[in-house]
Nucleic acid binder design. Sequence first.
DNA 1: CGAAATTTTGAACCGTTTCAACGGACGTGG
DNA 2: CCACGTCCGTTGAAACGGTTCAAAATTTCG
Lengths: 245, 245
Amino acid sequence: MLAQLSLRDCPHVESVSACGQCSARAISVCGALNEAGLDRLAAIAETLTLPADATLAYEGDPADHLFNITSGVVRVSKLLPDGRRQIVGFLFAGDFLGMAAGEVYPFSAEAVEPVTVCRFKRSAYRTLLAEVPSLEAALLDRASHDLQAAQEHMLLLGRKSASERLASFLLDVAARGEGGVRKGGEFSLPMSRSEIGDYLGLTIETVSRTLTKLKSAGVITLPTARSARVEDPERLRRLAGGREA
Amino acid sequence: MLAQLSLRDCPHVESVSACGQCSARAISVCGALNEAGLDRLAAIAETLTLPADATLAYEGDPADHLFNITSGVVRVSKLLPDGRRQIVGFLFAGDFLGMAAGEVYPFSAEAVEPVTVCRFKRSAYRTLLAEVPSLEAALLDRASHDLQAAQEHMLLLGRKSASERLASFLLDVAARGEGGVRKGGEFSLPMSRSEIGDYLGLTIETVSRTLTKLKSAGVITLPTARSARVEDPERLRRLAGGREA
DNA sequence: CGAAATTTTGAACCGTTTCAACGGACGTGG
DNA sequence: CCACGTCCGTTGAAACGGTTCAAAATTTCG
């Protein structure tokens, strides 16, 4: 959803899986790179496999690297001095991390579940960027897309009720799964209640209670604590109060 | 602060005022355009002068134009079907509007006070972008910067108390004024309490009460309802609970 | 199977909102 | 020049949604 760039809704998505060992090819971003560029990119990339809760980037550290998520889910978060946390986005396979960083990372990024990522040296990436102008156009597009997502999330955080937040969130996650949002569509919630709460600006108790309420209302079911099923897509959309409501 | 790109903290800021009639030159963005590019840009630009509350862009309308604010303040907002509003950012002289839009504007943009803007046709802008690769690099930088600001604001909306929100907001606005944040520094608040509330995710009453509380605490004074003075920068920063606290 | 972690549920509490009224600034018109 | 109406900001009191604190239920994992 956000912090950076996403390949997810790119018409050339197959490029994500096109690369076996590492997702260097993924950063070609919808064909912005030719073969030579791709090879150069692969040369500066390395694949990492990380366990749950591993840190990819720590808020305030020098932003030396740039990541592309190959599999798993990553949380991007910011902390207040007293420990309050706001998760500004979840990253899924195909998403980029670290584009928006300056000298230091303005956020932390950690694995929600075991992940594999493709890591690039920022310095090398900059050089490549300068050499391949078409890459920038693609990245600018994605940055704009992420900014839009961020604005949508500000609307959620600033103005929506707990039920509306959960409905919006479930819709987002469901839309990501295969088949999108449809009656009976089941999808996994890889993140904990605490992570959902910190993403939606709520406490774990409110998240739990609100999910229970949605379930009681027949809008969703919760096969397990870490998965959900949409039972009434129309009502869920109306509850979310979003885009087309 | 946000929706799009800003020239404000650009090392070449003088380029903003360098252009008399219209701010076409401003979009040169820190020297990304040569003279020829500048002329091409000026050709597709027009200057508009608008009264307070005039609409620059309406959420859902085709995103035909792109703006550069020459003077005044613009609010960028999103609405929920029932009328609840979230202002996702204020734009000041030098800021860009509309970069992050796709086919349609994902937000509305209105003048907070009388403004002058420089308007570009989006189609012509796209052509220019394709022809001048260096422009994209500069715009990508700014988009990243805006994304960071958006993430900071999500932290505010999701996790900060009313006092912390107001303190953060005052610090932001004060930092924009000449001299930045310093004891005795006075600055104007061109936006209404309602606009501040919709930006901070609060009601006008809470904004008013909280400002009064900050005043009583000796942290700020309010020379008029639309201006403020920082009396205790250190305490204000601590209250904001931000970056270095 | 048992310990630890996560999720759910309950009850009291609290910060912010809501509803209501008042005060002051501004602009229009008498 | 002052009376009047409107808009905006402030203040007060009550209500409410979500938080906090506490504990039980469930799941996870060694």
